[in-house]
Simulated scan of single mutants.
Amino acid sequence: GKGVTGMTTREEDFVEDLFITNTHAYMLFFTDKGKVYSVRVFEIPEGSRISKGKAIVNIIQMSPNEKITAAISIKSFEEEKESFLLMCTKQGLVKKTALEEYTDIRKSGIIGIKLNPGDTLIDVKHTDGKSEVVIATRKGMAIRFKETDIRPMGRATHGVRGIRLAKDDEVIGMEAVNSKDILLTATENGFGKRTEISKYRLQARGGKGVKNIKTTERNGLVVGIKKANPGDELMLITIRGMTIRLAVDDILVKGRNVQGVRLVRLEEQDKLSGVAHIVKEENENNNKE
């Protein structure tokens, strides 16, 4: 199907990600410059499905040259103080820092990770410190390694090498996984595939990885990866603001280095810009009982 409009976008704007949380949680917003800002969810204005929303700059004091690249929902810093924030940059660096180092964030934000010249922060995950990590690149490579390969570091520090990139390649996504998970990879032309994590051999951090998906003319380059286990639902997002809700059970599990299948039929000149995981709400689950 072609989906429905997930929100109305302004000129030169596009929908990049979707998040489902609750009003009592904290949202940590990370920017491409490596800074992090904190806000309570109830401070974010509620809107309808197709409303334009409110600019983040009106909610947090971010600089005009910053762009939100990741957001994390924290239910309680006290309850989750033993957890970690795992970060990944476009140039393939990763960093793991204890969540408790981010409890006191001033309105103007604080440094979440120090970046090398030309690098940007592209993804952040909230973990228990014992997961496995999968990093995927735009040209179809991916690496899987243990999170314990990354030693905990302070907040205002650089990361360590997560994946060694080929020339002109860059990281487009990271997932914290376990060996039983299934990974969905989506490409810009609306194609993708699901592959068991076990098909990606466990390697040491910092290697070149293995081929994840064929980036042919039909597929285009990779735009995102997400865990896609049985019963999960994902939202595909295009640069024109279109969305389609996708039951992952409808997508056959394939091998690793394949072309995949069509996930969504795109209109002319439209491209996929990302993929988001949908968390089922409690009342939705209760209605099924």
Rank of each mutant, 00 (worst) to 15 (best):
K114M: 07
N116Y: 04
N116C: 00
N116S: 11
G118A: 13
G118E: 13
D119P: 05
T120C: 10
T120G: 01
I122G: 02
D123R: 08
D123N: 15
D123P: 00
V124Q: 02
V124W: 05
H126G: 06
D128G: 11
K130E: 15
V133R: 12
V133Q: 10
V134M: 10
V134E: 01
I135K: 00
I135F: 06
A136D: 01
A136R: 01
T137K: 09
T137S: 12
R138S: 12
G140T: 06
M141Y: 10
M141A: 09
M141Q: 12
I143N: 00
R144D: 04
F145S: 07
K146H: 10
T148G: 02
D149E: 13
D149V: 12
P152A: 08
G154L: 04
A156L: 03
T157D: 11
H158D: 08
H158K: 15
V160T: 15
V160A: 08
R161P: 03
I163Y: 02
L165G: 00
L165V: 02
A166V: 05
K167D: 15
D168S: 10
E170C: 10
I172F: 05
I172S: 09
M174R: 02
A176S: 09
A176C: 06
N178F: 04
N178S: 13
K180W: 10
I182N: 12
L183V: 06
L184I: 14
L184F: 10
A186F: 08
A186I: 12
T187Y: 10
N189Y: 04
N189C: 05
G190V: 06
G190H: 03
G190S: 04
